[in-house]
Each structure stands twice: as structure tokens, then as C-alpha cells.
């Protein structure tokens, strides 16, 4: 996927400007940035939810905003931040609705649909929940069911808007591990907005950092997650260290209450140590 000269606006208010971006196929990309920097807007223009004010979003060279909605929905899926489900809907029913783009006005349910739903339930570990009501599930289970619905859609690209929000840390890891499974098993290209920089660095192949509606930097976690980036994008001083297990960079924020710390000098020193190790 590709964004070329992308600009987006809500009415008069410009939210994104002059964005050129390449989303590599078959990889996991995390979009990070401060609140109201345009992360969710970027994801919305990457799907069909918001038409860009300028520029294009290309999927294999074709402008997605000119593709018929159903054709696009067969190739590109999106999980909104807080999807709603009607009261009393069962897991199987909800996941089955993920097959919508593959059906015409009066077409019948096929064995291929059954297989896609069964696969999606199995991949997300929700097969046992199939007959349950959504209302009766925990937050983590519910998020897995929503992901199952997106899987039943069987798209090559999956966009997720903060899939870990409102989940406790164990469920956050569970959901992100699931996305990695999916990416490895099916080669699905995953693009997600994440708030947590450390989780983004841990799980994404590439990080895209946005600041005030513009691209700040894009690249591997080690390239993007730097003291300078965090300072420029979040206006926060921090230290960056390597996670001993994964080798990925980790961000430790500074606090005004840290004992006797001179933030800038500390930050500089840490960047030097990180460079030494890598």
C-alpha cells in the first residue's frame, strides 16, 4: 500500500498534509503519534471511511477511493476503534457477518463461507465461544471475536485502530501475538494504530511516526524509536534501551520527579550506550 501526497480534512480543519508513505506488503506496520496527530485519520483514509482532500491511497497501484466498495472490502479490512454489536448477537452470527463483502444481494451462504468462519474462529481461539452472546464475553474475548470477524472477511490487508485499548496488559499481548500469528500464517499485511511505543517497537516490523498531521519518520523500530523522535513527536524526554529478550528498543520516559536528573544530558548519554550495544 502506498500514500501519495495524501491530505485529509474534516470540513475546514486540515488533519493530514502532504503524506508520502509506503506500507510494505506482508509486514506489520505500527502508526504512532501524540493524541490528535492524525493517526486514526490516516487509518480512515487508508480504508474507505474518509475520502482524502488531496492525493491518493494506492493498493497495488489502484486508487482505493475509486474501487467499488465491495471489491475493496474483499481485499482490505478495517477494525474500528470501538465497534458496536447489537444486543443479543452471538459470536457465530457476528463473525459470519464478516463474509458480507463476498455476497451479492440475494446470494446464498456457501460451504466456503462456513469454512472461512470456522477458520477465523479457530485462528482466534474463539471456536468454543461460537454460541455465546457477545455481551457475556470479557473484553479480551470480545476483541478476539472482532478480529475473527475481520479474518472471516479474508483480506490481504488488515487495518486496526488501537486494537489493544481498554484491554489489560495480558490481553494486549494476547491480541498482538494473535496478529503476529496471522501475519506469519497468512501473510496478511497489518497496519495498526498503537498508543504504546514499547508494544509498537516490540511487535511491528516498521513504525510510522506522525506529528501534527505530517510524517515525522518511518522505518524499523530501531530507526524510528529514538530520543529525538519521542521529544519531537510527544514533547517528552526519555531514555531508549534495548530489550534484552527481543533486542528491540524500549522507551523509558523521564519524569520531573526523577531524582536530580538533567533530562537532556541523560538522554544523550543513553543514546550513546544504545549505539554501543547495537
Amino acid at each position: 500500500m502506498q500514500a501519495a501526497g495524501l491530505g485529509a480534512a474534516y470540513g475546514e480543519r486540515t488533519v493530514l498534509e502532504g503524506l508520502d508513505l509506503e506500507i510494505p506488503k506482508g509486514k506489520i506496520t505500527a502508526i504512532v503519534g501524540a493524541n490528535a496527530c492524525g493517526k486514526s485519520t490516516l487509518l480512515r483514509t487508508f480504508s474507505r471511511l474518509l475520502a482524502p482532500a488531496r492525493g491518493q491511497v494506492l493498493l497495488d497501484g489502484a486508487d482505493i477511493h475509486r474501487m467499488p466498495p465491495k471489491v475493496l472490502a474483499q481485499r482490505l479490512g478495517l477494525l474500528p476503534q470501538q465497534p458496536v454489536a447489537p444486543d443479543g448477537i452471538t459470536v457465530a452470527d457476528l463473525v459470519g457477518r464478516g463474509r458480507h463483502p463476498h455476497h451479492g444481494l440475494f446470494s446464498r451462504w456457501t460451504p466456503a463461507d462456513d469454512a472461512a468462519v470456522a477458520q477465523a474462529l479457530a485462528a482466534t481461539g474463539t471456536t468454543d465461544l461460537a454460541a455465546r452472546d457477545i455481551d457475556a464475553l470479557s473484553g479480551g474475548q470480545r476483541q478476539r471475536v472482532w478480529i475473527a470477524m475481520a479474518l472471516a472477511q479474508q483480506t490481504e490487508v488488515l487495518l486496526l485502530d488501537e486494537p489493544t485499548t481498554f484491554l489489560d496488559i495480558a490481553h494486549q499481548i494476547e491480541v498482538l501475538d494473535l496478529l503476529v500469528d496471522l501475519n506469519r500464517a497468512r501473510g496478511t499485511t497489518i497496519v495498526m494504530v498503537l498508543h504504546d511505543l514499547n508494544l509498537a517497537a516490540r511487535y511491528a516490523d516498521r513504525i510510522v511516526a506522525l506529528a501534527d498531521g505530517r510524517l515525522h519518520s518511518a522505518g524499523t523500530p530501531a530507526e524510528v524509536l529514538t530520543v529525538d523522535m519521542v521529544r519531537a513527536v510527544f514533547r517528552l524526554d526519555c531514555r531508549i534501551m534495548a530489550d534484552p529478550a527481543s533486542g528491540r528498543p524500549m522507551m523509558l520516559p523521564h519524569s520531573r520527579h526523577d531524582p536530580g536528573a538533567q533530562h537532556t544530558s541523560l538522554a544523550r548519554a543513553d543514546r550513546a550506550t544504545l549505539k554501543d550495544r547495537t
Binding site: L49, K70, L78, L79, V84, A85, P86, I89, H100, H103
Partner: peptide
């Protein structure tokens, strides 16, 4: 009757319906 399937998708919210190819 022809809109039954669309109503099923609209029940999931406008964004979700749109993401699944509903106008």
C-alpha cells in the same frame, strides 16, 4: 427484504458497515 443483509451490517455501526463494503 433486499436490505436485510445491509441492516445486519449497519447494526455494527457506520464505520464497520463501511469497512465491510456497505454504501
Amino acid at each position: 427484504w433486499a436490505t436485510a443483509r445491509h441492516l445486519n451490517m449497519l447494526a455494527l455501526g457506520d464505520d464497520t458497515a463501511s469497512a465491510f463494503g456497505v454504501r
